[in-house]
Simulated scan of single mutants.
Amino acid sequence: MYEPIRTKSVHSTMAGTTTDFPHRSREEELDIQLAGHLSALLAVTDELRSLTPTEDLDAAAERLAEQVTRLRGGGTPVRAVASGAGDVAALHERAHALAGRALVVAASRADTAVAILAAERMDAHALSSVG
């Protein structure tokens, strides 16, 4: 009824470990995930900066870029080219959600600097989307 599996599984089914596929530690996976959330938050921040430039957003973008660079081992983050068009309230909501995701990963990773930055960004975007 089912077609048999023709390829070898990428998951080890034996007690021993295989070396035919890359392994990453939990810490490395969390770094990758956290860098991704922060990069997305940086892109939204850059978009907001083009629509409503403020010193707070400029400072936040620099801090986010520094953290992404650190998490990626020195790789400079790609910066978004802002379109200059968009719904500011929707962008603040998106940024708030991304900062929340980053906060959760930073907390599980015990990265205090990123957790503080993410919490600050959540507060800033929560206030901006309301008022």
Rank of each mutant, 00 (worst) to 15 (best):
M14C: 02
S128L: 02
Q33T: 14
R63I: 01
G86N: 08
G73S: 07
A85V: 15
T69G: 02
E62K: 00
E29M: 08
V44K: 05
E55P: 12
S108C: 01
A60L: 07
T112W: 00
I116M: 02
D123Y: 04
A82N: 12
E55M: 10
P4N: 05
Y2M: 13
G131T: 03
R72V: 01
F21E: 05
V130G: 05
A115C: 00
A15M: 08
I5C: 10
L34Y: 10
A99Q: 15
P53N: 07
L51A: 00
A85Q: 14
V10G: 08
S39F: 06
V68K: 08
E62V: 03
D31E: 08
I5L: 03
E29R: 12
R94V: 15
R6T: 14
A107E: 10
Q67C: 00
S25T: 14
H92V: 03
H125D: 07
L34I: 12
T69E: 11
E55D: 14
V68I: 02
A126R: 10
D31P: 01
A118P: 03
G36K: 08
V104I: 09
L117E: 01
A60G: 04
R26Q: 13
A126P: 03
R109V: 00
D20G: 06
A15L: 05
T13K: 08
A106P: 08
E47K: 06
A35I: 06
A43I: 12
A80I: 09
R6A: 13
G73Y: 04
S83F: 11
S50L: 01
L38F: 09
R79N: 10
R72A: 04
F21S: 12
A40P: 06
D20S: 12
R101P: 02
L64F: 01
G131H: 10
S108Y: 02
A99K: 13
E3L: 13
E55H: 12
Q33A: 10
L34N: 07
R70D: 00
D56K: 13
A82H: 07
R26L: 09
I116F: 10
A85I: 15
T52K: 06
A65L: 04
L98E: 11
L57Q: 04
P53H: 09
A95L: 09
H125C: 08
R49D: 02
A118E: 04
G36E: 12
A102H: 12
L42P: 04
A40W: 15
A126S: 06
A124C: 01
E55F: 14
F21T: 09
K8A: 10
V104F: 11
L117P: 02
A99I: 07
G131Q: 08
V10S: 02
L57C: 10
A119P: 06
H23I: 07
A106M: 03
R121I: 12
A124L: 02
R49S: 11
L127P: 09
Y2S: 10
A90K: 13
T76F: 00
R24G: 12
G100E: 14
R79V: 15
L41F: 03
L51K: 11
A119R: 05
S12K: 02
S9M: 01
